[in-house]
């Protein structure tokens, strides 16, 4: 059975709801408490970016399977302004928060697989997966 949850993000409430849904699924899949906290933080960062830069969007959370592995997949989608300089954004220390390790490079570190697809004035889709070890 494939579990899938969609959470609409248009307020801070949405961010909390996405965290909650992510933590629940992570626990069900079998992630330990440290990984649960990491996955939740990644969801937070993605959801907060949607809220801050695109106003609204969606977080989709689902179980991932591949070659006998199990994991959790987060897909953050919005139809916002898009990200201008993806390469720079992925550099450490670029975030507006001034290099406290969070932001998109942080999400990449917290998760195992990470992909950004973004087009200016069209929107952004970020997919991140963490595999169970």
């Amino acid at each position: 059975m494939q579990v899938q949850t969609h959470v609409d993000i248009h307020s801070e409430w949405g961010i909390v709801a996405a965290r909650q849904a992510g933590r629940k699924l992570a626990r069900e899949i079998g992630f330990g408490s440290v990984d649960q906290a990491r996955i939740t933080t990644a969801i937070s960062e993605l959801a907060r970016n949607i809220y801050l830069y695109a106003n609204k969007g969606q977080i989709q959370i689902e179980e991932a399977t591949s070659a006998g592995k199990r994991g959790i997949k987060i897909i953050a989608t919005d139809q916002g302004p898009g990200i201008k300089e993806i390469r720079r954004v992925m550099e450490d220390g670029f975030t507006t928060s001034g290099g406290l390790g969070a932001g998109l490079p942080g999400v990449k570190r917290l998760m195992d697989d990470f992909d950004i697809d973004s087009e200016l004035k069209v929107g952004t889709t970020i997919t991140a997966i963490k595999w169970l070890r």
């Binding site: 408490s33 440290v34 906290a37 990491r38 939740t40 933080t41 450490d92 220390g93 290099g99 406290l100 390790g101 969070a102 490079p105 942080g106 570190r109 917290l110």
Partner: peptide, 14 residues
């Protein structure tokens, strides 16, 4: 634990 995640990220970035 939740608070420490942020410190962990800063550590990794460092």
């Amino acid at each position: 634990l939740e608070v420490m995640i942020g410190y962990g990220l800063a550590y990794r970035e460092h």
